[in-house]
Design a protein around this nucleic acid. Structure first.
Ligand code: ZN
Ligand code: ZN
Ligand code: ZN
Ligand code: ZN
Lengths: 150, 150
DNA sequence: AATATCACAAGACTGAGTCTCATTCTTGGT
DNA sequence: ACCAAGAATGAGACTCAGTCTTGTGATATT
């Protein structure tokens, strides 16, 4: 009944990485992790706080930010800078989940997209540049279908 | 002695665009424009406010933000989201000045770079995507040469 | 010069994000 | 099962980049 990791979920990987990093368990972190796992794209810290307060397990603001920082440091979640007021966070999936974002500057809509040529360009570029590139997150701005006309 | 625009500086273009958009002149806007023109890469609003206060012409905080918003709306300046606390702004040059940014997450260093393959990938991509793409600004994160080792 | 309108300064205000510290929970050892 | 060390958490004060308001000064047009 055991596996060798190929079917490991993000939650399982997160728990394992946290444990290996010396963290104990806790209800607040668990609640944040479960919420992030249920989302396919990015949430703001305030959205997370509100969703959790409304839901089963409320989590204080300090804990939301602390947990997000811990998860980011362990590369389990990634910041998404949409240029809107608040930073967004989403889980980092190893198999296939990698994507970037389109942001409508009129209505604030955030959409994921992925592009193989773009990934190749970034990979090549990363080798020639005076920086050891860790993560990359591309955000393209424009007007969505509903907001055409300025 | 007159030209047909090929040697138009960014300041000249900014004044022309502002005038065409119905703006009157003013000392605060002029001071912000001159400071931005003297920089080749991005500044934060607070850096702009401080530089102007120290320099010849102080400009109030409200004016700095208002002018930056006006210039951004007219595509004369561009936001740069470095993922640091503050948003940065830089002038948009038409001939050759186009570049993106590398950010060292350890020390905060911001470096410009440009890459032709990346530009091509983004141009192609922009056609297939459910968004009319206006501007693009890529930020790659990592560790700079002085900060290698985590 | 008078008028209308925009540009500006000063500062109060907002709210996302940070920090502190007392309390509660985990966990490994007894 | 019990205990102690140390991690996790909650509550709220605090910071400060960015916004908003309002009264004053500059500009262009007639
Ligand atoms: Zn996403
Ligand atoms: Zn839209
Ligand atoms: Zn730049
Ligand atoms: Zn560095």
């Amino acid at each position: 009944m055991s596996t060798h990791g190929h079917t490991e979920t993000w939650i399982e990987r997160a728990e394992a990485v946290l444990s290996a990093a010396g963290h104990k368990r806790g209800g607040a972190r668990r609640a944040v992790i479960e919420l992030l796992d249920s989302q396919s794209c990015a949430l703001t810290a305030v959205e997370i706080e509100d969703a959790l307060r409304t839901g089963e397990r409320g989590v204080s603001r300090a804990s939301v930010y602390r947990v997000l920082d811990e998860l980011e440091a362990l590369r389990l979640v990634q910041r998404v800078e949409t240029g809107q007021a608040m930073v967004r966070y989403e889980r980092v999936c190893e198999q296939g989940g990698h994507h970037h974002h389109l942001v409508c500057d009129s209505c604030g809509l955030v959409m994921p997209f992925s592009d193989e040529a773009l990934e190749r360009a970034i990979d090549k570029l990363s080798e020639r540049v005076p920086l050891r590139v860790s993560e990359h997150e591309i955000v393209l701005h424009g007007s969505c279908h509903d907001c055409r006309d300025d």
